[in-house]
Amino acid sequence: MAILEVHHIEKHFGATRVLEDISFDLEQGQALAIIGSSGSGKTTLLRCLNFLEKPDQGTISVAGNLIFDAADPATQRESEVRKKRLHFGLVFQSFNLFPQYTALKNVTLARELLAQEQPDFKENKKKILEDIQADGRELLAKMGLSERADHYPSQLSGGQQQRVAIARALALHPDILCFDEPTSALDPELTGEVLRVIRELAEQRTTMIIVTHEMAFARDVADQVIFMDGGVIVEQGDARQVIEHPREERTRQFLSRYSEG
């Protein structure tokens, strides 16, 4: 069964329709890349999945449970939305690390706050916090950042910051990890280290949605690709097939612009 089912999502900003009838499924352990030019709605779609934007139409289900229905206000209550968000992790284009916390604290903060809501937090406080710390260090080690755990974001390179941001998103064990152009804000020589980490996650069968402009990366790492243009899904299918042998004329035009550039 699909871990994520998105049906007929539609979103307007004022009179402008930015998403129209977006539907797709994502299987557990698969990576989905979303490609398309700027303004095609990719980022808005990702933001809808993370409840940063509210779709005007459509439904979102995770592991068979309906978690959002535009027609049902009961699925949109603030208190519940907060819990539902945890199905998704989001890595931002501009990292958005918390500048006043070390790399490690960036990774552990949200879990520490969530742990406070556990009924046994008071009795086992020390143990719980130690476990969270240990997990955080382990995640940073996985990102190749053991040495940087106690550095502040301003002391890290862009690539290092983005890897901390990935560790931060992973710390809450989301069902689906979303990336919003994770390398677009990086200098070209720093994109490699971030892409390598994402590639490793894909090899470990992490369920992911990656909005990206790196076509070769999408082809090699993703299982599925969606090409969006003007707020609609123009083409979706097997990653290699869509990128190497696109069926639609618009996809072909978009991809040829990339290979020229």
Binding site: N50, F51, R82, F92, N96, L97, F98, L109, A110
Partner: peptide, 19 residues
Amino acid sequence: GQQEAGQVLGMTKAQIFRH
């Protein structure tokens, strides 16, 4: 983006302000 980062990590409004 700071607020949004807090939101996607499941923090409440009060937690985002305070932390």
